[in-house]
Design a binder for these strands. Sequence first.
DNA 1: GCGTTTGCCTAAAGGTTTTAGGCAAATTAG
DNA 2: CTAATTTGCCTAAAACCTTTAGGCAAACGC
Lengths: 189, 189
Amino acid sequence: MARVGLTAERLTQAGAELADEVGFDQVTVSALARRFDVKVASLYSHLKNSQDLRTRIALLALEELADRAADALAGRAGKDALTAFANVYRDYAREHPGRYTAARLRLDPETAAASAGVRHSQMTRAILRGYDLTEPDQTHAVRLLGSVFHGYVSLEMAGGFSHSAPDSQESWSRALDALDALLRNWPAP
Amino acid sequence: MARVGLTAERLTQAGAELADEVGFDQVTVSALARRFDVKVASLYSHLKNSQDLRTRIALLALEELADRAADALAGRAGKDALTAFANVYRDYAREHPGRYTAARLRLDPETAAASAGVRHSQMTRAILRGYDLTEPDQTHAVRLLGSVFHGYVSLEMAGGFSHSAPDSQESWSRALDALDALLRNWPAP
DNA sequence: GCGTTTGCCTAAAGGTTTTAGGCAAATTAG
DNA sequence: CTAATTTGCCTAAAACCTTTAGGCAAACGC
């Protein structure tokens, strides 16, 4: 029996590709085994269970997203940084819908705390340094930005803005304009 | 064999309750059959398949949400309307997490067009009549509001804002303040 | 080369989905 | 009020996914 060289990492990577191809909730241990031309039970030496696989894909997606975001943020500030950061999310979701869905998987608190999710909020805070916000407004703004980015991308991914004028790209640009204006003019309580 | 009186409607209703109890993606034809103390195959006289069940729950949730929103909007305008409308979403998601998740199910275009989803966008537009926006800015604003509401509720539901100061309620209020300010002062392109 | 570890295997049990065909309860008609 | 028809829930069965247990052979360490 020739060994294929399965590892948790390769399985996670292949699972992420599978997610992008067939949708995150169609990612199954069986489908992954087929992809490696290997019996299903063999995967259980590398994965605790099906949920473990999904979690690993989620963590991978969070890392990839954070890496891209860090790249995009380098050398930028203000609205430039805001736009670049936001576009990373949107572009990633378009390129990797399955991974993006995975990144939204609910993680248990310890896993979440050890994930790249914390880099995401740190970077959002970094962007806000280009605006004149102090605590607790900065936290409110972090949450609002996260909501808009995730909300817009998620609705767009669900097809909410297709087949209707104006173009979604236009609304996205205007949403970023609006957020920039809002952050420069954050209302007092 | 005593008849239980299954109908698509009763199954949908029970499915929605099940979703709130165990999570939308744990809603299964089998679990529903157990709940009615009936054999699984019996449900297939009333439901096309598993996806049909999920779609029906989604449509139910969209209707309920739209009804609540219409109630909340009656007699309100401006920021008052905005806040009431937004709170309907958030409260519904807290009360009925499974149904809320269902409401975000991707529907095929015809189903979506015949769903209560269209009432939702009509109501969002109605709120914007209290602000001074004309097309295409109104559409951009509709999309932004949808993104914020869905994004915030979704992140909050995923536990993103718990266990950290300030309170999520506070951020929510400030987000609504911010949106109101933004709509009153919508930036030119 | 030899022993140990490790990787993929077979086997098997349990759960969900879905279809096909049957019997009895409910409904309709004479 | 009974007889015919419709309808509802059933049993049976196939297909697929998940997960555990135990085995054999390939890879590795000495």
